[in-house]
């Protein structure tokens, strides 16, 4: 098998157009800032999360809480319950793991209008290593009643999602990457709670989220040349999950491969498996991080090392085709 163009390195990642989700977030916030109810909190990472873009324009409505994520979530809740539309940002590992109990009680149980937008999720944090590479965050947030969970595929979808959560009351979690990631969308296409059909196909469905949506498209094009017809769904809304879309894919292709830069536990793969197990049982193979911590390395080196690339998806598709043929 020719695999040179199915791994991110040495060439693929530099041959595609890439944009930063966190810059898209900062720019979106700056636009939303015309609404005087929008308040932004950060925990000493504002230059990394790009909430500084908002801070520069609206310094009176930006609060740097220092390195105290727990207090940030508590304060966010207090502001929200006094009428503010609050965005709270940090790295995903701190925004979800460190402050879990505060998100649980002050944000979710209190049903507070707090939008947690976290950057630096997953392995693509890179050189900082496992301490900073959270691969459990979607599971943590999905388990919380009232919480909605989103993982955009690229910068444009990030901008659309920030607009959506601004318009809608209640707790949201949005998972963004540190890296500039491949562009998937040429035009706006986000619908909350619905998967997006990017390629139609009949042999197998690849359901991907975040960075791996672009990998799924590359894998699909490669597999087409090998005579395998792959449907590709972008699942930007992890909770509430698009039950209807998943079951339709299960019925139409009979096989599903999921792909995410997250643990194979409690993320997209788990959610899709739950839906098909209850509604239309078909074989589901999950591509993700296999219950291990990450490590230091360059972002795209790590993604290749852990098989989170087009080749990883191709392999899962080939395995599932054999298993079910």
């Amino acid at each position: 098998m020719v695999t040179g163009n199915l791994t991110w390195l040495p060439n693929l990642i530099n041959s595609v157009e890439r944009k930063s989700q966190r810059e898209a977030y900062g720019n979106a916030l700056e636009k939303l800032g015309v609404d005087r109810n929008v308040v932004v909190l950060d925990a000493d990472l504002s230059t990394s999360t790009h909430t500084t873009i908002f801070q520069k324009k609206y310094p009176d409505r930006f609060f740097n809480m220092g390195i105290s994520e727990n207090n940030m979530m508590a304060v966010a809740s207090g502001l929200a319950n006094s009428g503010k539309n609050v965005f709270a940002s940090s790295f995903a590992v701190f925004a979800t793991g460190r402050s879990y109990d505060f998100v649980r009680q002050s944000v979710c149980y209190a049903d507070s209008n707090v939008k947690i937008v976290a950057t630096h999720a997953g392995l693509t944090v890179g050189e900082d290593g496992a301490t900073h590479q959270i691969i459990e965050d979607m599971g943590l947030m999905t388990g919380l009643p009232n919480m909605k969970v989103l993982c955009p595929a690229d910068a444009m979808e990030t901008e659309e999602i920030i607009g959506y959560i601004y318009e809608n009351r209640g707790p949201f979690y949005v998972r963004l990457s540190r890296e500039k990631i491949p562009v998937v969308h040429k035009e706006k296409s986000f619908t909350f709670g619905k998967s997006e059909l990017l390629r139609d196909g009949s042999d197998v469905t690849v359901i991907a989220t975040g960075i791996l949506v672009s990998a799924a498209l590359i894998a699909s094009d490669y597999l087409k040349s090998k005579g395998i017809s792959v449907k590709v769904l972008n699942m930007a809304t992890i909770k509430p999950i698009d039950r209807e879309g998943i079951l339709k894919a299960a019925r139409e292709t009979g096989r599903i491969v999921t792909a995410e830069e997250h643990s194979i536990y409690n993320g997209l793969g788990s959610r899709v498996s739950e839906v098909v197990a209850e509604g239309y049982p078909v074989t589901v193979y999950r591509l993700g991080v296999n219950d291990v911590f990450g490590e230091s390395g360059k972002a795209w080196e790590l993604m290749d090392a852990y098989g989170l690339n087009p080749l990883g998806i191709v392999k899962k598709v080939e395995e599932i085709m054999v298993a079910r043929s």
């Binding site: 308040v39 727990n70 207090n71 508590a74 304060v75 966010a76 502001l79 929200a80 006094s82 009428g83």
Partner: peptide, 17 residues
């Protein structure tokens, strides 16, 4: 350990408004 932070958020909101 959460309520003091919650109260701070409310106090900040009063100031903003």
């Amino acid at each position: 350990g959460q309520g003091l932070g919650n109260a701070i958020g409310m106090a900040l909101a009063a100031r903003l408004d």
